[in-house]
Nucleic acid binder design. Structure first.
Lengths: 124, 124
DNA sequence: CTAGAACCTGACATCCGTGTGAGTTTCTAC
DNA sequence: GTAGAAACTCACACGGATGTCAGGTTCTAG
C-alpha cells in the first residue's frame, strides 16, 4: 500500500503520515525508487495514533507508549507500561472534567430556557 | 479586585486575563489611572472560560455562548442557545471518543501485562 | 517513449493561547 | 516625596500538528 492509499483509507493527510514517520510513530518500507510502502497493519497504527492525538497526547508521549503495543512485551515495555498508566489516569481526569463541563452547559441551557418561556424545552 | 489578585485567585496568568478581555470574554472597569477593576463575578467567569478552553472550544466559540449566560436571556440568547446545544453535542461526542480511547489503553495494558508474567496485575 | 499522476524532500506558513521583554505610568507605603 | 511593586501597552516568540509551495524523481497507462 502506498502513502496515497493509506491516506485515503485512514482519512489522514499524506503530510501527516510523513510527519508520523518523522516522529517515529509509523514505519514504512521503501520501494527501490524510495516510495513508502505500508502493510495493512499500518491502518490500525494510524487510527491508534490519531486517537491518542485526539486525546491530547503529544507525539513524544505517544512514542513512549508504543513499545507497549509493538513489541511482544519485554523489558522495553516496562517503562512504557508505567507511562501508559500515567496517561490513562490523566485521560480519566480529563474525562471527568469534560463531564463536569457538559453538566455546566446543561445547567446554563436550562437556566436560559426557563427565562424564555416561548421556547420548547427540549427533552433529554 | 485588581488584575493581579484575580490572576492569583483564579490561577490564570495576568497575560491570559488581558487576552480574555481582548477577546471579549471578560469585562473590567477601569480606575482613573487605567488599571482594570474586576468584581467578584469575574472569578466565575474566568473559571467558566477556562473550562470551555479545556473542552477544546475557541475564543470565538465561547464568545458566541456567553450571551446565553450573561443576559437575563432575551432575543440575544436564542442563537447562543442553539450554538450551545451544538457545542454540547460536540462535547458529548468527544467524551465518547475519549472513553473509547481509555478502553483502548486498558486493553493494551492488559495485553502487555499478560505477556509479562513477572509483573503484578494492578487491581482496577 | 511519453504524459501525467503520484511520490519524494525541504522549507516556510498557519492557528491560538500563552510566555516574555521593553519601556512607561500608576498605585501604595514609608 | 520617593522607592518599589504592580499595572499598562505593544510586540515578538513559541510549540505542535497540519497546510502548502517549489523543484525534482518515480511510477503507471496508453
Amino acid at each position: 500500500m502506498k502513502i496515497g492509499e493509506l491516506a485515503h483509507r485512514s482519512g489522514v493527510s499524506v503530510r501527516s503520515l510523513r510527519y508520523y514517520e518523522e516522529q517515529g510513530l509509523l514505519v514504512s518500507e521503501r520501494s527501490p525508487g524510495g516510495h513508502r510502502q505500508y502493510r495493512e497493519e499500518a491502518l490500525e497504527r494510524v487510527a491508534f495514533v490519531q486517537r491518542l492525538y485526539a486525546a491530547g497526547l503529544s507525539s513524544s508521549t505517544i512514542l513512549e507508549l508504543l513499545p507497549c503495543v509493538d513489541t511482544p512485551s519485554f523489558d522495553t515495555s516496562l517503562a512504557a507500561l508505567d507511562r501508559m498508566a500515567v496517561e490513562r489516569e490523566r485521560l480519566s481526569a480529563h474525562i471527568t472534567e469534560l463531564l463536569e463541563t457538559r453538566d455546566a452547559l446543561d445547567l446554563a441551557m436550562v437556566r436560559a430556557r426557563s427565562a424564555q418561556p416561548n421556547r420548547q424545552q427540549r427533552p433529554r
